[in-house]
Amino acid sequence: MTKLVLAADHGGFELKEIIKKFLAELGGYAVKDIGAYSAESVDYPEYGHKAAAAVASGQAERGIIFCGTGIGISIAANKTAGIRAANCVSEYMAEMSRSHNDANILALGGRIVEPELAKKIVKIWLDTPFAGGRHERRVKQIG
């Protein structure tokens, strides 16, 4: 069972809840929700850092994080060594973030990605393996 961590600020809270339910419907995932637990205003860096720490430490294999646009929380998560958080707004971006970049955290914007598209992005992101090969060399250069 794949261990996933979910985290969101207030702008991503509603989409996080939708994706959490979607993951339960898919099955095969042990999901740990580390907040926020309401739409009350909070600071996205706190949640980006918490999710990144969970993935970097091995407590979770991958993470899915949410804020209003996905931008701020992904920037915060990417400050943690070993994290490759990709803010995806399309199915193609989700596929490439895994296949070419071995992204270990997916960021989604709760105010810009509709729930049905978000579900498709999540499914593709979870199902796409890292291609390795020349991409492995490039990922290693990221640090």
Score class of each variant (00 low, 15 high):
M1T: 14
C88I: 09
G28P: 02
S97T: 13
G68H: 11
I112T: 12
Y92W: 14
V5P: 05
R84E: 09
M96S: 09
L126F: 10
M93K: 03
R138W: 11
G58F: 09
I121C: 05
T2D: 09
A51I: 06
E40G: 10
N87F: 01
A24L: 04
G133C: 10
E136K: 14
G11H: 12
V55D: 00
L106A: 03
D43R: 03
H49G: 14
K50L: 15
V42A: 11
G12C: 12
R138L: 11
A81R: 11
N101R: 08
A107D: 07
R134L: 13
G58I: 02
S99N: 14
L4T: 06
I83L: 05
G143F: 03
E61P: 00
R62C: 02
W125R: 00
L26V: 06
I83M: 05
G143H: 02
M96R: 04
R137E: 13
I71M: 14
E40L: 14
V122N: 00
A81F: 04
A30V: 07
A107L: 07
V42F: 11
I83G: 01
V139S: 02
E25F: 05
S38G: 10
T80V: 15
A56K: 05
D102R: 04
E114H: 09
D127R: 02
I71R: 09
K120L: 01
Y37G: 07
H49Y: 15
S97M: 08
Y37E: 09
G12T: 13
Q141W: 01
S97A: 14
K50D: 13
F66H: 04
F130C: 08
P129G: 00
T80L: 01
I19C: 00
D33R: 07
E91Q: 14
S90R: 02
F130S: 04
R98K: 11
K119E: 06
V42Q: 06
M96Y: 07
A7Y: 08
L126T: 03
N104Q: 07
I65V: 15
V5M: 09
R62A: 03
I121V: 11
C88M: 11
G143Q: 06
D33S: 06
R134Y: 11
E114Y: 08
H49M: 13
V55W: 03
F13N: 06
E14V: 15
E46F: 13
Y44V: 10
G82I: 02
I83Q: 01
S74Q: 08
